[in-house]
């Protein structure tokens, strides 16, 4: 069985972010990066499954040189090999472009299972998983909080809204987007780090893929990145209930113009 896990590297949640001068992204100099939170859970779920059923875990990430670190961390925790997608042409991508690149790579891997985190903590699109599943023509389940694998079928518990859940059973191959908290991500041992040095990290660039360049041109572009300006203000109305009521109506009608 082959489980592929997609991992995104992001600025660490503890970092102090500064917006770049062009207001199109954050200033990455001196930033600390780490793996997207839900992706760590996806990796752990894959490793647990491999330990229980045997097989191979392949981790995939796209991004510049620094992305190698999250792949190494994953290998140290027990993944078997890694694919690092890296090309200057891929600097600005939208979810669909990214999904097409991933699909081109993963088609060859013939994964039985593909895990991604629910969504990335930076842009929070949550689109890559479903898009990739469509491109690879396989079923997908999002927001997975529990998995149970048996005889080529997987039964998952999916989180719905308002505290509701549902169980879904699917035939492999299938793509799951994993919710944070499904397990306890492990800590990389030194023994794992030593073993990691003997594992393969395959570099893949645009030239290695059978994918025309127009396929990843971003259809969506980012206009401006900014810290939200304070737009709301709380007004305390004082006085007797009658006065407050009158003031409130006046405020709603004349200032907030809700009617």
């Amino acid at each position: 069985m082959r489980i592929c896990v997609l991992i995104k590297q992001l600025p660490d949640t503890g970092s102090a972010l500064k917006i770049r001068a062009d207001e199109l992204w954050v200033d990455e100099d001196n930033l600390v990066f780490s793996a997207n939170e839900s992706d760590s859970y996806a990796l752990e779920e894959a490793l647990l499954m491999k330990e229980a059923q045997g097989g191979e875990v392949v981790v995939v990430s796209l991004g510049p040189e620094r992305v190698g670190q999250v792949l190494k961390d994953a290998l140290a925790k027990g993944a078997d090999r890694a694919i690092h997608l890296h090309d200057p042409a891929w600097e600005v991508l939208d979810s669909l472009g990214l999904a097409r690149i991933m699909a081109a790579v993963l088609k060859e891997e013939q994964c039985d299972l593909i895990f991604t985190g629910l969504q990335s903590d930076d842009t929070g699109d949550g689109q890559l998983g479903p898009m990739l599943a469509e491109l690879l023509d396989m079923p997908h389940v999002t927001l997975v909080v529990e998995t149970e694998l048996s005889d080529g079928r997987i039964k998952v518990k999916q989180e719905l809204e308002g505290g509701w859940f549902q169980y879904v059973t699917a035939q492999l191959p299938v793509l799951l987007t994993i919710q944070s908290g499904i397990n306890k991500p492990r800590y990389a041992s030194l023994r794992g780090i030593m073993a990691m040095k003997h594992k393969e990290i395959k570099a893949v660039g645009a030239g290695d893929l059978d994918l025309p360049a127009d396929q990843w041109v971003a259809g969506r572009t980012l206009q401006r990145l900014y810290v939200p300006e304070k737009t709301k203000e709380t007004v305390f109305l004082e006085g007797s209930p009658q006065e407050v009521g009158a003031a409130l109506v006046d405020h709603l009608v004349n200032t907030a113009k809700v009617f």
């Binding site: 660490d12 503890g14 970092s15 600390v32 780490s34 925790k77 306890k184 492990r186 800590y187 990389a188 041992s189 030194l190 023994r191 794992g192």
Partner: peptide
């Protein structure tokens, strides 16, 4: 920790933060 990868559960995050941010609080 080094062989089994099993620090105390609460400490794992702090150890990772210490490497990343240079302080155990993160």
């Amino acid at each position: 920790v080094l062989s089994e990868g099993k620090p105390p559960e609460d400490a794992a995050g702090s150890l990772e933060k210490t490497v990343q941010q240079g302080n155990p609080w993160g």
